[in-house]
């Protein structure tokens, strides 16, 4: 039985196609503003890579902040549940999950394979990928390099502001004062780790603790968090796709509960063409993104 999970995050769109036991295809590509069209594009690519068609996929679960914009999905599930399922599948001993996404960060508590509590950051970019992106941009370094660079610091700079816009200025001031980029980045990571830690702390941290999402790829952040929390974190081999994986797992679970007839009816309801604002001549706007 083929199933798929698609996770449209604020920054990256991820997809997992599975035959029910193993992953056949997984992809991650930047999210653009036009989710519907994007969903088709990544799905088309993923299907092509394992020589499948939409009709052969029994059940598709969409998750992530753009989950409602996936016309061909059979069901929408929040990324919180999907991350939990993905991590629980990979690491059954994990009790606490930290997900650092592009524009939010979350903590999830798991007990006996069930989600018992969760928390999301509150309308502030601190502790999210967006924060690091802005800082990397301002400092003129590559986003994927900042973690490693921060680990080379011996004397982390003091960054007090956790507002991205003001931290940006602070970083520039420190830079102008002669602090090295490494030290500034270390300061930035420290400040964010402390912010994330106090958010997760509300859930009562229990071992094992896993970190997922784009933030898990930032080694500097992972180390800074480990230092705060006091023990090592579990990092999945491909932290970006845990949400999509969880979605695929849910898809399989749901599909097995349905009769072939029900599955067929579901599939018939899928919309396989993106009718969107951008395709609608009546709306007549010239925005190109």
């Amino acid at each position: 039985m083929f199933v798929a999970g698609i996770d449209i995050g604020s920054t990256i769109t991820k997809i997992v196609i599975s035959n029910g036991t193993e992953i056949l295809a997984s992809m991650a590509t930047p999210t653009s503003a036009e989710h519907r069209r994007l969903a088709f594009r990544v799905m088309d690519d993923a299907l092509a890579s394992c020589f499948l068609s939409y009709n052969e996929i029994e059940y598709i679960v969409a998750t992530g902040y753009g989950r409602i914009n996936v016309p061909f999905a059979d069901q929408q599930v929040t990324e919180i549940t999907c991350h939990m399922r993905g991590i629980n599948f990979l690491f059954p001993n994990v009790r606490t999950i930290i997900d650092i996404g592009g524009q939010d960060s979350k903590g999830i508590k798991v007990k006996d394979g069930k989600q018992v509590d969760f928390i999301m950051n509150d309308k502030c970019a601190a502790g999210t990928g967006r924060f690091f992106e802005q800082i990397a941009d301002v400092l003129g370094v590559k986003l994927e390099d900042i973690g490693e660079m921060s680990l080379r610091s011996k004397n982390p700079a003091s960054i007090s502001s956790l507002c991205t816009v003001f931290a940006e200025q602070e970083a520039l001031l420190r830079l102008s004062e002669g602090a090295s980029i490494e030290d500034i980045l270390a300061g930035i990571h420290k400040a964010n780790a402390s912010r994330i830690h106090s958010m997760i702390g509300k859930l009562k941290i229990e071992q094992d603790v896993a970190i997922t999402g784009g933030g898990a790829k930032n080694l500097g952040l992972v180390r800074a968090l480990e230092q705060r929390i006091g023990f090592p974190l579990v990092v999945p081999p491909e932290p970006l796709i845990t949400g999509a994986l969880g979605a695929a797992l849910i898809a399989r679970e749901t599909a097995t509960k349905l009769t072939p007839q029900q599955l067929k009816e579901k599939k018939a309801k899928r919309r396989l063409e993106a009718v969107t604002f951008f395709d609608d001549p009546k709306r007549g706007s010239e925005i190109v993104l």
Binding site: S194, H197, S198, I200, G201, K202
Partner: peptide, 8 residues
């Protein structure tokens, strides 16, 4: 302050 924070 941080303790109070993580206490909720």
């Amino acid at each position: 302050l941080e303790i109070a924070d993580s206490e909720g």
